[in-house]
Amino acid sequence: MINIISAIISIAICTGCSTQATMAVYSQPEGAYITEVGTGKSWGMAPVSVAYNAAALKQHVNSEGCYLVKGFKAQWVSGASSLLDPIKLCGSATGNYNISLAREASHPNLEKDLQFALQVQSINAQRRQAQAASDSAAAALWSAWSTSQQNNINCTSTPIGDSVYTNCK
């Protein structure tokens, strides 16, 4: 019960106090390497998550009220690439956004990128299965441990004369 109350208090304290916007960057097909335009900063293989400080975003508002951020370049294993720059985030400075960079089908070696995307999906499925197995094992271990921690006490009371004697084991 105390854990539930603590969780509710934590949620109540943190509600409304987000200081950042988050953007998920996807690629179609999956598995493109994502870099930031202008800085060349590497974000890794899509999908990636990018956080923006809300105060910094508010300094880059356009005439439409949207926040302008540096764009991204997606590069697939075939060499095909896609660019989106700048990116307009229209909404809250503490919102969640999603963008997807699509590979042009006319670029050669589409099959290579599709095959790589299948491999990425297979690896991700294996990771999810391994995590589920790990979670299940941890739950079983916790259950076994918590069951073994229960101390069962058996007591018997016996009246002898004007007294009652209780023996507990």
Rank of each mutant, 00 (worst) to 15 (best):
I4L: 08
S6N: 08
I8W: 02
I9M: 09
S10I: 12
I11D: 06
C14E: 15
T19W: 05
Q20H: 15
M23Q: 01
A24K: 05
Y26V: 03
Y26S: 13
S27F: 01
G31Q: 07
G31S: 06
G31L: 05
A32D: 14
I34T: 10
I34F: 01
T35V: 15
T35W: 12
T35D: 10
E36L: 06
E36C: 08
E36I: 04
V37M: 13
G38M: 04
M45H: 09
S49M: 12
Y52A: 06
K58Q: 03
Q59G: 05
Q59I: 01
H60S: 15
E64C: 06
V69D: 06
K70W: 06
K70I: 03
G71I: 08
G71P: 05
A74Q: 08
Q75L: 07
L83Q: 05
L83V: 15
L83A: 02
P86L: 02
L89R: 00
Y97P: 04
Y97Q: 04
R103H: 01
E104N: 10
P108I: 01
N109E: 03
L110P: 00
E111V: 11
D113W: 03
D113H: 09
L114N: 07
F116S: 12
L118C: 05
Q121A: 15
Q121L: 13
Q121F: 06
S122I: 08
I123N: 15
R127E: 14
R127T: 11
Q131K: 15
A133C: 01
A137F: 10
A138L: 14
A140W: 14
A140S: 15
L141T: 04
S143V: 01
A144P: 02
W145T: 12
S146T: 08
T147P: 00
S148E: 00
S148N: 05
Q149N: 14
N151R: 08
N152C: 03
N154P: 04
C155N: 02
T156M: 11
S157C: 14
T158V: 06
T158K: 03
D162C: 07
D162H: 06
T166N: 05
T166I: 07
